[in-house]
Simulated assay, not measured.
Amino acid sequence: MKIDELNWKILKCLQNNARMSNAEIGRQVGITSPAVSERIKKMEDAEIIQGYTTFISPFEVGYQLKALITLRAFMGMLKPFLEKVKTYDEVVNCYRITGNENIVMEVVLKNQKHLESFIDQLISFGETKTQIVLSHVVKHSEIKALE
């Protein structure tokens, strides 16, 4: 599917506020609400728009730590880990990456004891490295049109 300039304007609106009404988007981009709805539906069908979500502050709901944990899987342990990681409640994002490590995870944890126990679960799969997140500098930055 071709993403024209109008579709990029719609995507910009939705990335800034996924709850924006089609009527408001239409006013901002200069087309009718039904036309906005039709374009959004086509982008959803083409999987350009892959869903809508609510971002929750882990700190406001009781988590004290956010961390990035990399895993360098032991020989033969990557595939089992790729299945197991889907079951961990602590993991909010997990990426398979290139380089010395195989995996990077973003995790939320109740406290240091919880971190220790979580790492204890991971070490059977490989070597881990942990970085504690101090602050969020860029948050859900908008994806822009290619030039």
Rank of each mutant, 00 (worst) to 15 (best):
M1S: 05
I3N: 06
E5I: 04
L6F: 01
L11W: 07
L11Q: 05
C13W: 10
Q15Y: 04
N17L: 05
N17G: 14
S21N: 05
A23P: 00
A23Y: 06
E24S: 01
E24Y: 15
E24I: 15
I25P: 03
G26N: 07
G26W: 09
G30H: 06
P34D: 09
P34K: 00
A35H: 12
V36Q: 03
V36Y: 09
E38D: 11
E38I: 14
G51S: 02
I56L: 09
P58D: 01
F59N: 12
G62F: 09
Y63H: 13
Q64W: 10
A67P: 13
I69W: 10
R72Q: 07
F74R: 00
G76F: 06
L78Y: 07
L78C: 01
L78R: 10
K79W: 02
P80C: 01
L82C: 04
E83Q: 13
E83S: 10
K84G: 01
V85M: 09
V85Y: 15
D89C: 11
E90M: 06
V92T: 11
C94V: 10
T98L: 04
G99Q: 03
G99L: 05
N100V: 13
N100S: 05
E101A: 14
V104D: 03
V104F: 07
K110H: 10
N111L: 15
N111V: 02
K113M: 12
K113S: 15
L115S: 07
F118K: 02
I119K: 02
Q121N: 01
L122E: 12
S124C: 09
S124Y: 05
G126L: 04
T128N: 01
T128P: 03
K129M: 15
K129C: 12
K129L: 14
Q131L: 04
I132T: 14
I132L: 05
I132K: 13
I132N: 10
V133Y: 14
V133I: 10
H136G: 15
V138W: 09
V138G: 08
K144I: 13
A145D: 01
L146F: 08
